[in-house]
Design a binder for these strands. Sequence first.
DNA 1: GTCTATAGGCTGATAGAC
DNA 2: GTCTATCAGCCTATAGAC
Lengths: 227, 227
Amino acid sequence: MAGPISGRSRGAKARGVEESGEPVESVVEILDCAAQCFMEMGFQGTSIDDVARRLDATKGRIYYYYTSKANLFFDVHREGMNRLMVAVRAVMTPSADGAQTLLAMIEAHALTMMQNIAYEAVVVQGVHMHRLGATTPEQRRILDELMAVRREFEALFAGVIRQGQADGSLRAGDVSVCVKSILGAVNWMAVWYRPRAGETVEHQRRMARDIALQQIHGLAGPGAHSQ
Amino acid sequence: MAGPISGRSRGAKARGVEESGEPVESVVEILDCAAQCFMEMGFQGTSIDDVARRLDATKGRIYYYYTSKANLFFDVHREGMNRLMVAVRAVMTPSADGAQTLLAMIEAHALTMMQNIAYEAVVVQGVHMHRLGATTPEQRRILDELMAVRREFEALFAGVIRQGQADGSLRAGDVSVCVKSILGAVNWMAVWYRPRAGETVEHQRRMARDIALQQIHGLAGPGAHSQ
DNA sequence: GTCTATAGGCTGATAGAC
DNA sequence: GTCTATCAGCCTATAGAC
């Protein structure tokens, strides 16, 4: 489930990861606190001391597992991206037509955003930062790797849209712009969505479905009689 | 066209603004360079020296017109927001039905994004930063003022959607989520859109129309035969 | 108006005790 | 493993020359 840790490079293996590949609890705690901080204050607005304070610790702890703030950010990003990938891939059923599959994918994307808002807010920030050149060559390498996964993710949507255009369930148009608009509508949740106290999973599912339906059928869709 | 300058508070009137209310050229230059820097590196990632370097000047020039980096950011934000407001209000014709008006508004919004990408990228960042508490009380006041304009902007869309639901041209649903999805799709352009060399206005108009049509009619809209 | 010089604060990262 | 102490660099903002 968890990917590699991009922290330490010295030593035989990256610290903070067991033989099984599962990260140790300390690392999960750090990632959770970092995700929260990055969501609330942004990458540049968050200091390592901020993350440490939320951990009830000092930065010594964090620097034992991560060589830099950037690598910590990248690990949160990677985890958020993985969760999105898993959720969206799980609902891709080859038997359905393009429109049906796309609806399910958008729904899964939106639901994952809501249930992992801190991690996904970091993913959205990371996509933003992509243009902002990462400083060191090492960081550039990691960011490139993350962006490759991002492109893979977007390609899933593009592929299904092309399939839908071929089977006639989706209308023709510039696939690239279609994908960006849909993902934009969902990614924007990172800005406005925060779970309300006592919010149920049913409520989240309903909202995810509403968002997906709107993207597939439009605001003037079935049920309206537009001129 | 230009709003007040949120920079200096000392002196009889804000510097950098003529009696007519038009900002002087120096201020426009500063705003343009600042908008570019903020777009490329973010608010926190941009130093005043960065803006000065782009101006071919030193920061003394900037601090003559603005008391702080935050106030500079706010002025760029205000200008971007004004341009959006003007463009969207201009296409709101009471005679049309809700769906038609909404289509025109989204189109105008998207086109304004493309033609003012640096300023609008700052607006998008500002909405993002809204949660991030501004530090000083003075900055909090300005940010609150900008967010009030933002809410007014979103209310324009919400009002037209309600109108469309009443006249039957738009289907029922949670208006708030509808608005956020639509604006998210368009705002996301701040992340991915950059003008290509030799891009014509016709090309921009076509793209704006495509985006608007997709939001109104959906991807499985007229022309597709979804199950 | 614009520049140079600099004060003062914050932060990323490291060294070394425990 | 985690902490304390600290350094070095950067950045905002100001003071004062021109």
